[in-house]
Simulated assay, not measured.
Amino acid sequence: MSVMREVPFPSRESSELPMNIWIDDADSAIDVIDALALSPFATGAQPWSRLANLERVRPDAPLSPADGRLLRTARVEDGSESRLIAGEGWTLRVVRHRNRTATVSVTAVDEELAKSVLAQSIEGAEEAMPEVDHVEMGFWWRGMHGGTRSEKPITAQPWDEINKNYSAKVRPALDRLMSITPDDVNGRLILLHGEPGTGKTTLLRTLAKQWHDWCQVDCVLDPERLFNEPGYLMEVAVGYDSDEDTQRWRLLVLEDCDELISSGAKAQAGQGLSRLLNLTDGLLGQGRDVLVAITTNEDLARLHPAVVRPGRCLAQVEVGPLSKEEAVAWLGSANGVSPSGATLAQLYALRAGREFTPQPGDESTGLYL
């Protein structure tokens, strides 16, 4: 069964567009709310729109101005709830999820009203991010309608609390990396290479915390698509609008991109390598305060010469295992420590009472340390 219904928003100007929506038994109540929320914008009755994505929403947050009229409510079994709220000259759609995220979108008759209604709706709605051992990190992925970015708090410890997780021979290079400021930027590529489990991902989380005052760190979840789709690459390279007076630098994190920067990258990944280099110091990177951090398990000798040429890398660090002496000092015991030392992942496993014996040629994820 299908029924056509004309959206009942009165025409205010001759330039407004008519709109019809189709409803059938495949549509849900939430689909109806979505259509009703979109219709005043589509017809032109309320031509201004503003949207906000919220994290850590307080359970008691109303997410609506006090004078709003609740028109529709729909809830699904997974705990998501959608509401349609209206006021004089504006319409509000609120979608809340069980994981305490929410999407708030407003349409209004003018821009100032849209901004005002959105500000009233989200004011005080989010709980403050924990200040201890947390930092905001952005996450990019390619959605149905282009690049999508979400910001979430991640656990990150200060460098002076975790520097003993790394070998003394590599620590000076990491000290320099952690202390870099915008005035020190000389080269746009950060390359962390080494065997799995040595702590490369932990380093990047700590780097996000150390650089927080001047650099926003964004992790690209699908780097293979980033460099294969020029439109997606442009979205990520250009970045996103911010209300800050001074735009911060951005660091794009690409994890485990062996095929992108290996010696055979040109043959394996097509134009991916060329676009990466263009982003770091080519035409695409000009005028954009963007750095790129790549982690790889590849040995330095197996990386493409264009990636490691002098002047391209802001930092090029081989993150290896701790020596036996360092591993014993870290663990407080020699039990289970190999004469050749141990990786950070092995030490955490030993401290937890688990045996951890890597297999030769193991290409695991390294426990994401």
Rank of each mutant, 00 (worst) to 15 (best):
M1R: 15
V3C: 14
S11V: 13
L17E: 15
I23P: 01
A26C: 14
L38N: 08
P40C: 10
W48H: 12
R50D: 06
L51V: 12
A52M: 09
N53M: 09
R58G: 12
A61D: 03
L63F: 01
S64Q: 07
G68L: 05
L71C: 12
T73A: 10
A74E: 05
E77D: 13
E77P: 05
D78H: 11
E81T: 13
S82I: 07
L84V: 02
G89A: 08
R98V: 11
R100T: 10
A102D: 05
A102S: 10
V106N: 03
A108N: 04
E112Q: 13
A119F: 05
Q120D: 15
E127W: 06
V132H: 08
D133Y: 13
V135T: 06
E136L: 14
E136M: 14
M137P: 00
R149A: 09
R149K: 12
P158I: 05
P158K: 09
P158R: 13
E161I: 03
E161G: 01
N165G: 05
K169S: 14
I180S: 03
I180T: 07
D184V: 11
R188A: 10
L189T: 04
G194F: 07
T198S: 01
T198K: 01
G199Q: 01
G199W: 06
T201V: 08
K209S: 11
Q210R: 12
C215M: 07
V220Q: 03
V220K: 02
L221N: 13
Y232V: 04
V236H: 00
S242K: 03
E244L: 13
E244F: 08
D245V: 14
D245F: 09
L254E: 01
D258M: 04
N278I: 14
Q286M: 15
V290P: 00
V292A: 05
T295Q: 09
E298R: 15
D299S: 14
A306L: 15
V307S: 01
R309I: 12
P310D: 03
E318T: 07
V328S: 03
L331E: 03
A334H: 12
P339V: 10
L344C: 07
A349D: 04
L350D: 06
R354S: 14
R354A: 15
T357I: 15
P358D: 00
G361H: 14
T365S: 10
G366T: 02
G366I: 02
G366N: 02
L367W: 11
Y368G: 00
